[in-house]
């Protein structure tokens, strides 16, 4: 544990040194220095205007995550349990996973209009596929005796999902959720960068337009810190669940 903390510290220091070196190379215009960014982070965290943008993104992200995780789980369990449905869906899903979904954003905007629903839908279509694919694979790889027992006990679909499939497939499902989490955040941010008047993606886009590298690095650092913390927590949960049985 001590070693890990030391590793973490060393890599962080290396990154900051690299950042500072790049700053010297390209100047204030191209990249704000780490110290200036830190100062601005302190200021922004005290400004209510900044928190309104954070809240806007957080609400969109929360809803998108709810849809991608919840919807992905339901679909994944179903596709895993019903083999034919899974076989029908899988190639379509893998093809969809590798599409540049940005292409579809105008459709989202035309269907849902400018605003929250389009962002939520766009985030959700980014995150849902890995959740479906991981939960589907997890259920398929379960010992057949589990699903057979559920059938013998004549459990209905809901009880089967909640008491048999979900607990047994949980470790892989958490792995899928971890990837889905990052992609959902990416989707919401791209959505805000393309068409929004509020939110962190809009702040970044606006700063890119004004060539305000301080704000860009401030938002990017805070986003990265948030994503890295959430990811570390999910990774820890993931490892804990995967080693539960050993």
């Amino acid at each position: 544990m001590k070693r890990r903390a030391l590793d973490m510290l060393l890599v962080s220091v290396a990154l900051v040194v690299l950042w500072q070196a790049l700053h010297w190379r390209v100047g204030e215009e191209g990249l704000a220095s780490p110290a200036a960014t830190l100062r601005q982070i302190g200021e922004e965290l005290e400004s209510p205007r900044f928190w309104r943008h954070v809240a806007e993104t957080a609400i969109a992200f929360g809803w998108a995550l709810l849809y991608s995780a919840g919807g992905g789980l339901v679909l994944g369990l179903w596709f895993g349990f019903r083999r034919l449905a899974g076989e029908v869906a899988e190639p379509v899903l893998t093809a969809f996973a590798s599409l540049p979904k940005v292409t579809l954003y105008p459709i989202m905007l035309l269907v849902f209009g400018l605003g929250l629903p389009a962002k939520v839908a766009f985030g959700a279509i980014h995150g849902i596929v890995p959740v479906v694919l991981f939960s589907m694979a997890a259920v398929r790889n379960l010992a057949p005796v589990l699903t057979r027992t559920a059938r013998v006990l004549r459990l209905d679909a809901r009880t089967t999902a909640l008491t048999v499939l979900l607990p047994a497939a949980l470790p892989e499902i958490v792995s899928g959720l971890r990837i889905g989490f990052s992609l959902t955040l990416l989707g919401v941010l791209i959505g805000e960068m393309f068409a929004a008047k509020r939110g962190l993606g809009f702040l970044i886009m606006n700063a890119i337009g004004l060539n305000d590298s301080g704000t860009i690095m401030t938002v990017a650092t805070l986003l990265f810190a948030f994503a890295a913390l959430a990811n570390a927590a999910l990774l820890a949960l993931d490892r804990h669940l995967h080693h539960r049985g050993d």
Partner: peptide, 10 residues
């Protein structure tokens, strides 16, 4: 493992 959480477009 956290790479894809960075919005590289910035």
């Amino acid at each position: 493992a956290t790479w894809y959480a960075v919005p590289v477009f910035v």
